Amino acid sequence: ADDEVAKLLVDAYRKNDEDKLEEVKKRYNISDEQVKRLIRKVL
């Protein structure tokens, strides 16, 4: 599931889509710190 979330985050990140990032964060209840970590893992 982590990889799936990471893909969604990276996708939103690449598109610079703040709304999507927020949506994913809320849906999976993850912190900014986790977001950064997941994005770093993929990029």
Rank of each mutant, 00 (worst) to 15 (best):
Y28D: 01
K26S: 09
I30K: 02
L38A: 05
V10Y: 14
Y13W: 15
A6H: 07
R37V: 11
Y13L: 09
V10L: 15
E33D: 10
K15T: 11
L38N: 01
Q34L: 08
E23P: 01
D11A: 09
E33T: 05
R14M: 15
D2Y: 14
K36P: 03
K25T: 03
R14C: 15
V35Q: 02
Y13K: 02
L43W: 08
K25A: 06
D11L: 06
Y28P: 00
K25H: 00
R27A: 11
L21F: 09
E4A: 10
V24C: 04
V5G: 04
I39R: 02
N16T: 03
D2V: 11
D3E: 10
A6D: 04
I30A: 00
L9Q: 00
V35A: 15
R27V: 07
K15M: 12
R40G: 13
K26I: 08
N16W: 08
A1N: 13
V10Q: 07
L38P: 01
A1S: 12
D32I: 05
K15L: 13
V24D: 01
L8S: 04
D11Y: 04
K15S: 13
E4G: 06
N29G: 13
D32Q: 05
K7S: 08
K20E: 10
Q34W: 10
S31H: 03
E22P: 00
D32E: 08
L9E: 00
D2P: 10
Y13G: 01
A6M: 12
L8H: 04
K26Q: 10
A12Y: 08
L9R: 00
R40Y: 15
Y13R: 02
N29K: 07
A12E: 01
L38W: 05
S31M: 02
D3V: 08
D3R: 09
D3Y: 12
K25W: 02
L43G: 04
L8I: 07
D2W: 15
D17H: 04
K25D: 00
A12S: 03
Y28Q: 00
R27M: 13
L21H: 01
L38I: 14
E18I: 15
E23Y: 10
D2T: 11
V24S: 01
V42F: 15
E22F: 07
E18C: 14
D3K: 08
K41N: 11
R14D: 05
D2Q: 10
V24W: 04
K41Y: 11
E18F: 15
E22V: 06
D2R: 10
D2N: 11
D32Y: 04
Y13T: 02
E18H: 15
D32M: 05
K7F: 11
V10G: 04
L9I: 13
Q34Y: 12
V35H: 02
I30V: 07
L43A: 05
D32T: 06
N16P: 03
Y28S: 01
R40M: 14
V24F: 09
A12I: 04
A12M: 03
I39D: 00
E23S: 08
E4L: 12
V5I: 14
E18R: 15
I39H: 00
D17P: 02
L8V: 05
D2I: 12
N16D: 07
Y28L: 04
D11W: 06
E4H: 12
Y13P: 00
K7V: 07
V5K: 02
K41C: 07
V35K: 01
K36F: 10
E23N: 04
E22T: 09
L43N: 05
L8K: 05
Q34P: 02
E23K: 08
V5N: 01
E4N: 09
K15P: 01
R40A: 14
E4S: 09
L9P: 00
L38H: 03
R14Q: 12
V42R: 05
S31G: 04
D17L: 05
E33Q: 07
L43E: 07
E22C: 07
D17W: 06
K26C: 06
E4T: 09
R37F: 11
D3P: 09
E18L: 15
V42S: 08
E4F: 14
E22Q: 11
E33P: 03
D19H: 13
I39Y: 02
D19T: 13
L8G: 02
N16R: 12
K15F: 08
K36A: 13
L43T: 06
K41F: 10
L8W: 06
L43V: 07
L43F: 10
R37T: 12
V42Y: 15
I30S: 00
R37A: 15
E23L: 07
K7M: 12
Y28A: 01
V10I: 14
N29T: 03
E33A: 09
R14E: 10
K20D: 03
K20A: 14
S31E: 03
I30L: 15
D32P: 04
V24L: 15
N29H: 08
Y28R: 00
D32G: 04
V24I: 15
L8Y: 05
L38M: 08
S31L: 03
D19Y: 11
K7T: 08
R40I: 13
L43D: 05
D3N: 09
N16L: 06
N16F: 07
L43Y: 07
N16M: 09
S31Y: 01
A1K: 10
D32N: 07
A1W: 15
K20F: 11
L21E: 00
E22R: 12
K25R: 08
Y13S: 02
I30T: 01
K15Y: 07
Y28W: 07
A12H: 03
E18Q: 15
V42W: 15
K7N: 09
A6L: 14
D32C: 07
A6Y: 13
D19N: 12
L43R: 04
V10A: 12
L21Q: 02
Y28T: 00
V24G: 00
K20G: 10
K20V: 09
N29F: 05
E23Q: 10
Y13F: 11
Y28E: 01
K15D: 11
V42Q: 09
K36G: 08
L43K: 05
R14F: 15
D3H: 11
L38D: 01
K20P: 01
V24E: 01
D19M: 12
V10H: 07
K41G: 09
S31Q: 04
A1Y: 14
